[in-house]
């Protein structure tokens, strides 16, 4: 019975911890499927976490924070789209610059709003989520996998990433498809960030994403750029995270495992998964290539 309780708790913790990863990797998926590499996911998440926490703090309502995070994500991703689509800047370098930018801009705004560069004020229980983001994430996985296969616009997205010339020949603007995809990816990734600050924690704290944007990319690659396998990959990384939290302070034969080693467990799992002991993964054909 104890064992049953233990595994149920671990399973629930895994689902909770998977939520931010699922949103971010779905965002990454629509961007990369349209042919645009998205290393900037981390910054979109940070932005979403911050904007969500600030909006929920002032409005005292979680859903307003949730929508504000989405808008904030759309805004920063639109700037990213401008750089990589219109200015044709290198996608990976620009992505890293955006990660730096978010790390600099958030303390800047936080200092203006709250006169501190640390965490935002802690949110009361009423203006936080208890389970909703998890539900939204699951629905989004199903919706996206249906959308990609069964709709005209879903096919546009796939073609923008696989064979942009063909899409162009059929009279659809590849640029517009990519703009829409990249911008929307920012909104989704920002929901990932907001589920950190409004659901898993009770405020925004500096650098709270802790590399989850990159783990989302890893699960995307691991899941071969498909919604449901990517979702499962997110669960794997979340499980590593859940085990990590569970192991902290646990004693084995009277000696405690150093907490620093436990904390790096998810990162090691990511590397092992990415190094691909399970088949190779083929990216969209036109990923990162110019028109």
């Amino acid at each position: 019975m104890d064992l049953f309780l233990f595994f149920t708790a671990l399973f629930l913790a895994t689902l909770r911890l998977a939520t931010p990863l699922v949103f971010a990797s779905l965002g990454g998926m629509i961007s990369e499927r349209s042919g645009i590499i998205n290393i900037a996911l981390e910054s979109f998440m940070l932005m979403g976490a911050f904007v969500g926490a600030v909006a929920a703090h002032y409005s005292e309502h979680a859903w307003i924070g949730w929508m504000a995070a989405f808008l904030g994500g759309l805004a920063i991703a639109a700037v990213y789209a401008f750089f990589v689509i219109e200015l044709r800047a290198d996608q990976i370098i620009t992505g890293m610059a955006f990660n730096l930018l978010a790390m600099g801009l958030i303390p800047f705004f936080s200092k203006i709003l709250f006169n501190s560069t640390g965490s935002t004020p802690s949110l009361p229980l009423e203006s936080r989520f208890s389970f909703e983001p998890l539900l939204v994430a699951a629905l989004l996985v199903l919706a996206l996998s249906w959308w990609l296969k069964n709709t005209r616009s879903g096919l546009w997205l796939l073609f923008a990433g696989e064979n942009p010339q063909a899409l162009l020949a059929s009279g659809v603007s590849v640029k517009k498809v990519r703009w829409a995809a990249v911008t929307l990816s920012g909104g989704f990734a920002a929901w990932g960030g907001a589920s950190l600050s409004l659901y898993l924690a009770s405020s925004y704290s500096p650098l709270m994403t802790g590399g989850r944007g990159f783990m989302a990319l890893a699960s995307l690659i691991f899941g071969k750029w498909r919604p449901v396998p990517t979702f499962l990959a997110c669960l794997l990384f979340a499980l590593a995270d859940a085990i990590q939290i569970r192991l902290q302070g646990v004693q084995i034969n009277g000696t405690e495992i150093p907490v620093q080693f436990i904390q790096i467990l998810p990162y090691i799992v990511t590397i092992i998964a990415l190094a691909g002991f399970i088949g190779t993964s083929r990216p969209p054909k036109a990923l990162g290539k110019e028109l």
Partner: peptide
């Protein structure tokens, strides 16, 4: 109002300026 994190904003904009 300006903190040391401003350094990151400068770095990011310089990278974007050069990449753009």
């Amino acid at each position: 109002t300006i903190t040391r994190d401003f350094s990151r904003i400068i770095q990011a904009f310089i990278i974007l300026g050069v990449a753009g």
